[in-house]
Design a protein around this nucleic acid. Structure first.
Lengths: 235, 235
DNA sequence: GGATTGGATATTGGATCCACAATGGACGTT
DNA sequence: AACGTCCATTGTGGATCCAATATCCAATCC
């Protein structure tokens, strides 16, 4: 049984990933490998490995001989990531639906309830992140695509970081999840896709200024249309 | 001008990436960091960094304390990667088209001609890989999405590795490219998407046994349908 | 007075060294 | 003779050491 191995580098990676995803270290902040190594009581080597992995996920940027900083977030990046998620998660929904079992649906309902009950808790933000991700991933795993899971995991971490940066509270997420569950239970693929798309799009919109409109010809525009979205002007 | 800096690790990464993408080291082969370091005349440190990055891209697998092997390829993985590419490249086409200029189109035509002329050359396979990727990427860059480029670059490397593993010659690629160019020139988004999808799907089909059919409910099935594909049985 | 260059300092990237885990073979036991 | 255990060997992961590069500041020149 390989995989049970916990190397120091794994530990460091998890802790740094957590720090970044939760916004404990903000975008633009500098990560000092020496300092981190000292504070964790390890050498710089595993810290370097962890940073390499964070870089591959796009969470940090390594400036040669000039240190490593947490990747900055701006609205353009948020829109970019949202577009990719819409394109891939709507695919995941479609591919997962045919393999949906009552058991998985129950598991999702559990997570849904758990989310509702925690909406006003002390660590609401923290709990939301984990439970929300697990709710969606439970479904997506049914698609049976390791690549898809890998991409979505990375993108989720990015998105979560942005959500926290822009201080977006997701009160409406419950309703979105209920809508998704209903569509899944009814076996309505089109509605499940639409609900997922609106869920992701809604999170993005809350980060944007009031005057926000989808830029025609953007990846976001394209992804929205692919998933059946109809622009305001055409309605 | 910093940023153009070439570190040793970058060099090692490029060489290893090349070796893997071109199949010089086959799937399942073991990579010995010590041996690589010696043959390149460097220490193990930059080799380790390079391997870390290859791992993040899914090109190699690191078995804790047991070495690193080139990720195996099978038909399921090929199908998986193809599905992701279809989903993302069709998005890229749609987002790029509105920003298409005559200049870019000319650049693509150049690459197209170059590809045709090299079809029977000595290093045909090698040339094809690079030129084909550049042909598509030239278009996709117009979408203005760093994330999309990053994901597609990784997926392309995977796909190329599989293509070479299954020893697929892409004679038809020329025709596909011509079709894409025509659609782009005409500003026909739907046709450009269809052409791109068929291009990618065609490459996958050539890896499959003759009896191959798209599994209903797979990510491939979903991606194909999203891009407007109609299954045989429904035609 | 401002800009440019040279050196001091700090920090990253690379090389080397060390410890521990994992395989393979030898030996002993049943 | 077969199986299990122990030890030696190999090699990965981590720690430490060294070199190369960027930044910062001061001195010098225009």
């Amino acid at each position: 049984m390989p995989g049970i191995h916990r190397r120091v580098a794994d530990e460091v990676f998890d802790r740094l990933h957590e720090q970044i995803a939760t916004g404990a270290v903000a975008p633009g902040d500098r990560l000092d490998p020496t300092e981190i190594a000292a504070s964790y009581g390890v050498s710089r080597t595993p810290v370097r490995e962890a940073i390499l992995r964070l870089d591959a996920q796009g969470l940090v940027e390594r400036l040669p001989y000039r240190g490593v900083v947490v990747t900055g977030v701006d609205l353009a990046a948020a829109e970019d990531v949202a577009a990719m998620r819409i394109q891939l998660e709507t695919l995941a929904v479609q591919a997962a639906l045919p393999h949906l079992t009552e058991e998985t649906l129950d598991r999702m309902r559990e997570l849904h309830e758990e989310l509702r009950s925690r909406v006003d808790g002390p660590d609401a933000q923290q709990a939301f992140s984990g439970l929300n991700r697990e709710f969606h991933m439970t479904l997506y795993r049914l698609a049976g695509s390791p690549t898809l899971i890998r991409l979505l995991t990375d993108l989720s971490a990015q998105a979560e970081r942005m959500r926290l940066h822009f201080d977006v509270r997701r009160g409406r997420a419950d309703d979105d999840h209920a809508r998704i569950l209903a569509a899944l239970a009814a076996g309505d693929a089109e509605e499940a896709v639409a609900a997922t798309r609106d869920h992701l799009f809604g999170a993005l919109v809350m980060m944007m200024p009031a005057s926000f409109g989808v830029t025609p010809g953007s990846t976001l525009d394209a992804a929205l249309r692919t998933s059946g979205w109809v622009p305001e002007t055409a309605r």
